[in-house]
Measured scan of single mutants.
Amino acid sequence: CHSECLGNCSQPDDPTKCVACRNFYLDGRCVETCPPPYYHFQDWRCVNFSFCQDLHHKCKNSRRQGCHQYVIHNNKCIPECPSGYTMNSSNLLCTPCLGPCPKVCHLLEGEKTIDSVTSAQELRGCTVINGSLIINIRGGNNLAAELEANLGLIEEISGYLKIRRSYALVSLSFFRKLRLIRGETLEIGNYSFYALDNQNLRQLWDWSKHNLTITQGKLFFHYNPKLCLSEIHKMEEVSGTKGRQERNDIALKTNGDQASCENELLKFSYIRTSFDKILLRWEPYWPPDFRDLLGFMLFYKEAPYQNVTEFDGQDACGSNSWTVVDIDPPLRSNDPKSQNHPGWLMRGLKPWTQYAIFVKTLVTFSDERRTYGAKSDIIYVQTDATNPSVPLDPISVSNSSSQIILKWKPPSDPNGNITHYLVFWERQAEDSELFELDYCLKGLKLPSRTWSPPFESEDSQKHNQSEYEDSAGECCSCPKTDSQILKELEESSFRKTFEDYLHNVVFVPRKT
């Protein structure tokens, strides 16, 4: 048989008469490798580009789960590009990614509803959504962080984005990388972005840091009482949809009607710091009717980097990364020049730590249904340095008659930039024990000054392991946590139920 035959053949030295091919099969003959313009397919066939392209389009058009959109890589027609490569849609070739590779997620039936953290986790790592997304989240724990972890990498949506009755959302900033909504599939009414009845939605994105392009379709905003109209108009300008909307697409009466839409800028007039305090004062603000001013709200939190936005980490279910302080308005003076500047002394802060701070007014709604208010920009203030805590785990070892090696770990709280350490030492008198000992005694162990690591005695271990207080009263049991108490109650309830079950099964009433 021919060298490319495997198993047997019907005619000697003829690659077209093989029972099976050793390498690849091409047009009725066995070959060692697939010549151009053919590609290896499933490690035994040679196919042309049209064959591989037909497989790709067949799966793409069917949208069946589990099928493969075949691509070409290293002269092979394979189910998908290997790690580190992405497909070129024009020629199906796998090309190296520039940075992290995109991950295209194809949605069944063309859309997916995100109504819980669990459903959001199914899209973790996706960068391109081939379909439409509907966000409908009523509640949950730590929602802002969970949504950002699972949806934060999405850069492109081919269909539309719909935010509907998501009472738990305060902001859409968890879509931190969303840059493009194509609108290839539109919501009824030709809408590519749809926001309806979101009672706590206050911000779409921080438009000073976020760009969003909507290729096709219109915007729809109705019944978002805490979303200011200025935020919607800003989205029109940034996304390129200005002029597409009709009169009733953006409701003037049901958007922002319960919001404090600040239209003035508060400026800080005085800032002073110490290692654990920050004193702030800002310019006074009074609405047209000074009785509408209820006070100020001061927001602050630790910020290692200057990239904080107002609604980071917030949701309507209680999660809030900001510390909020309510401040009463100052006494009002008739003389504008003698107006008191409101302020606040922030206490209990960490030394040498940068804080993000902003302040906003708290006002009631005027009778004319106009909203007044003022808010400052987010500023960054760093507390002063102070003395560091003591170095940890000092170790001293003498390696000769004239040297001592000293080692330690950095302090747990540096409280500033540590530039150097101060080492103090003092000579001590020799131990009298060394002169009084009889060095001729056998088995004498000389006193040693070398360091030995501390260890816990058996008594201390027994005390720590004991669940009861000892007789001397030195140790006591740790208080039980809520989960331990709940577990004990469940076990007790189970024992009672099981005992009742045994009584009912074992003891049967005697027939009379």
Rank of each mutant, 00 (worst) to 15 (best):
H341P: 11
P394F: 01
H222A: 05
L108D: 00
P288E: 13
K277A: 12
Q339N: 15
I250H: 06
I163K: 02
P287M: 11
R202S: 13
L204H: 01
T371W: 12
I278A: 03
P391H: 02
Y160W: 04
L133Y: 01
N334G: 12
V363S: 06
G110R: 07
F290T: 05
L331P: 03
P410E: 14
N263Q: 07
S402L: 11
F299W: 14
L204Q: 01
C317Q: 05
P304E: 09
D326L: 13
R124Q: 03
S400A: 14
P330K: 05
P342T: 06
M346E: 02
G348W: 03
I157V: 14
D292I: 10
I232A: 10
F193D: 01
T383Q: 00
Y223V: 11
L169S: 10
L180K: 11
R369P: 05
Q245G: 15
E302L: 09
A120P: 03
R332V: 13
S269I: 15
E187N: 12
T309V: 13
L331Q: 14
E156G: 04
R247K: 09
W408S: 00
P388R: 15
V325S: 10
K112Q: 04
G373Y: 03
T309S: 15
N320P: 04
E146P: 11
M297L: 14
E155F: 08
I405T: 04
E156S: 06
K234G: 13
E111S: 10
E156M: 09
V238Q: 10
A356I: 07
H106T: 11
P287A: 04
A251V: 09
T241S: 09
Q403H: 11
D335S: 15
A144E: 14
T353H: 11
L147Q: 02
I250P: 08
D315L: 05
K234P: 02
S119P: 04
L294H: 11
S119H: 13
K267Q: 11
K242R: 09
L362N: 05
Q339L: 12
G343L: 08
L178V: 03
D328F: 08
A356T: 03
A259T: 11
T215E: 06
L147S: 02
F358L: 03
T127E: 00
L212F: 13
I114Y: 05
K337A: 13
D115N: 06
G348P: 12
L153N: 11
P410R: 07
N334I: 05
T386Q: 04
I181G: 00
T383M: 03
A251Y: 11
L293M: 11
I137N: 03
N141V: 13
L212H: 01
I137S: 02
K112A: 10
C261H: 03
D393A: 15
N141R: 07
N142M: 08
Q403C: 11
R244Y: 08
E184W: 12
E155T: 05
S158G: 03
C261Y: 02
W282E: 00
E264F: 08
Q403P: 00
R244D: 08
Q258T: 13
L107D: 03
F221K: 01
S269D: 06
I134G: 04
G240L: 15
I232N: 01
I154V: 12
Q216T: 12
D289C: 14
C261W: 03
N190E: 06
K350D: 02
L298P: 00
G295R: 02
S230Y: 01
L229P: 02
N224Q: 08
Y285P: 02
R244K: 14
C317D: 15
Y380E: 01
T353V: 08
L133K: 01
S333I: 05
L178E: 00
V128Y: 13
C317L: 10
K277W: 03
A251H: 04
S401E: 11
A120N: 02
K301V: 05
L186F: 11
W352Y: 02
N200K: 14
S192T: 01
R179G: 11
K242D: 14
L180H: 09
L153D: 03
V390T: 13
P351E: 03
D328A: 10
P342D: 08
I405H: 06
Y191F: 05
L180G: 06
Y355A: 01
S116K: 14
A149C: 14
I135N: 00
P336A: 00
V325C: 14
R370Y: 08
S171F: 07
Y167F: 15
R179N: 06
A303K: 05
L161T: 02
I114W: 01
L280N: 00
Q121V: 05
L153G: 09
D249Q: 03
Y305P: 10
